[in-house]
Design a binder for these strands. Structure first.
Length: 323
DNA sequence: AATATGTGCAACCGCGCACGG
DNA sequence: ACCGTGCGCGGTTGCACATAT
């Protein structure tokens, strides 16, 4: 409530005064970066680190906006960037993560080493979005189609999760109580992420819906939620180990090498069982606790400074170019 | 061969959030 | 508590290239 007022105040103020530009637009170059500019930027950051992005262009002698420099660095020049087409495993990961996180490209990118949020966003918008739309438009074709280029049970799981997500969103949008609860709205995506990190997500990744922790966990949650009591201990049990390293292991587990298991996933009878538990899943989504008792599931964001430890050359950034 | 249309991707823009004064 | 500033994120744009006609 207080935040709302604050927000309104700020908005009115911004409307009156106009937002100050992030840089002097007249003296700033726009458009594609030249190799010379890239070299200047890379050299400067190698020597000094990026420091304050706003002041970087001036200090580095670039006629660019600080924002533009940051974007160029993070999306293109930064070492460790993986370029080239997405492999099927990466596609699968993006599909699954998007199912749970929505358009949280940065969050999705944090699970795909070497890929940038911008790249993933572009890939989603130009490729995957169409496939999902086609699949959802023709549900009867889902079971036999090769929409994802991956004819596996996990493909069906993806679509099922996507459907569940859409359904959850629809319910949230229709429930004024949930809408009025800012914390509920704020953490909605977190729930999906937590689900992913949980045994439920694990079972999904493993493609073992039958006799999986999902059925066990969801049924236990259902039982408990009907009694209206979900304790912190329960949550810890439900969402797996509170051990941070264990959690990290799970995160790592999610990247490419794990997708092989995923791609060879469960048989169709197992996924059918998953279908049957969809009601329980929805119950699970709605019954997730509102408390802040699952901080252990939040992993630290990569420390960008690591990229500055070893000086890089332009050939590192442009292995395919002659400089 | 020329033109129209579609596609992919780099870059820009504006907003919201975090943080320090 | 308020305000200003910087950063990061997500949506959008525009250009270059590919493909179709």
């Amino acid at each position: 409530m207080r935040n709302m007022e604050k927000k309104k105040k700020r908005e009115t103020k911004q409307k009156k005064m106009g937002r100050s530009p992030c840089c002097d637009k007249e003296a700033v170059k726009k458009g594609a970066w030249s190799p010379e500019e890239d070299k200047t930027l890379v050299d400067y950051i190698n020597k000094n680190g990026h420091g304050t992005w706003r002041s970087l262009p001036k200090l580095a002698g670039l006629l660019r906006c600080g924002k533009s420099c940051r974007l160029r660095w993070t999306n293109y020049l930064r070492p460790g960037i993986k370029r080239g087409p997405f492999c099927p495993e990466e596609e699968a990961s993006i599909m699954q993560l998007h199912t749970m996180l929505g358009n949280k490209w940065a969050a999705i990118a944090s699970h795909l080493p070497g890929r940038t949020d911008n790249e993933i966003k572009n890939f989603w918008n130009s490729h995957l979005k169409k496939r999902v739309k086609a699949s959802l438009d023709q549900p009867e074709s889902i079971l036999t189609s090769d929409d994802f280029g991956l004819e596996t049970p996990s493909t069906r799981h993806m679509v099922q999760w996507e459907s569940a997500r859409l359904e959850a969103e629809a319910r949230l949008s229709m429930d004024p109580l949930l809408l009025s609860s800012s914390s509920a709205a704020k953490t909605e995506c977190d729930y999906f992420l937590r689900l992913w990190n949980s045994e439920v997500g694990e079972s999904f990744r493993q493609g073992v819906a039958c006799q999986s922790p999902l059925s066990q966990v969801s049924s236990s949650i259902k039982d408990e939620s009907t009694s209206g009591v979900t304790t912190q201990t329960d949550s810890a049990r439900i969402f797996g180990s509170a051990d941070a390293t264990e959690n990290q292991k799970q995160e790592e587990h999610m990247s490419c090498h794990n997708s092989e298991e995923l791609l060879t996933g469960s048989d169709s009878s197992k996924s059918h069982e998953l279908d049957n538990s969809s009601e329980t899943k929805m119950q699970l989504l709605q019954d997730l606790p509102n408390g802040n008792d699952m901080e252990f599931l939040q992993e630290p964001i990569d420390d960008v400074s690591m990229y500055l430890q070893e000086p890089i050359s332009l050939t590192d950034c442009y292995p395919w170019k002659q400089l």
